[in-house]
């Protein structure tokens, strides 16, 4: 085996990368078009797909990196995909955290306003303590 000194990328791998990235681009674009995926969250997916396409077209990028770090080029490929996946997951966790904070504020607001409505309806309660915030 040539091992680390492997220079070219195998044609089968190249075709696989190209096919998968094209498929990913199409799926993401279709999801955006149908409104299942919002544009701002689709960007990282499109970035991943774009990177993947780039490698399919210019495989020299990863074979050069592989030679530089003495890795198999497939290892380099998977590491880069993994990095993109991590970025996407991290981004979504940020979005979820922000949403849960807003969700909490919304629930509190709803509870306080419901109480207000009840007070106004019954005409009793805390007229003497009202104060605009």
């Amino acid at each position: 085996m040539e091992g680390y000194t492997q220079t070219g990328i195998q044609t089968a791998h190249r075709v696989g990368i190209l096919g998968l990235s094209l498929l990913l681009v199409l799926v993401v674009l279709e999801l955006v078009r149908r409104g299942y995926l919002r544009e701002r969250y689709a960007l990282l997916w499109l970035g991943t797909a774009g990177f993947s396409l780039l490698i399919g077209i210019f495989p020299g990028i990863i074979t050069a990196l592989a030679a530089l770090f003495h890795f198999q080029y497939l290892t380099v490929l998977f590491t880069m995909y993994f990095a993109f996946t991590l970025a996407i997951v991290l981004c979504f966790t940020i979005v979820i955290s922000r949403m849960s904070e807003r969700n909490r504020q919304l629930a509190q607001e709803l509870a306080l306003l419901s109480r207000k409505v009840e007070e106004l309806r019954s005409g009793a309660g805390s007229q003497d303590r009202e104060e605009t915030p």
Partner: peptide, 29 residues
Amino acid sequence: PAALVRLPYNLGIGGAMQTGFKYALRNGY
């Protein structure tokens, strides 16, 4: 005359207390 403020779902003790704090501020305590 205890007032009832009902959260639509469970927020945990912190979220519940904070609701009470907001209630206190808005009602001039």
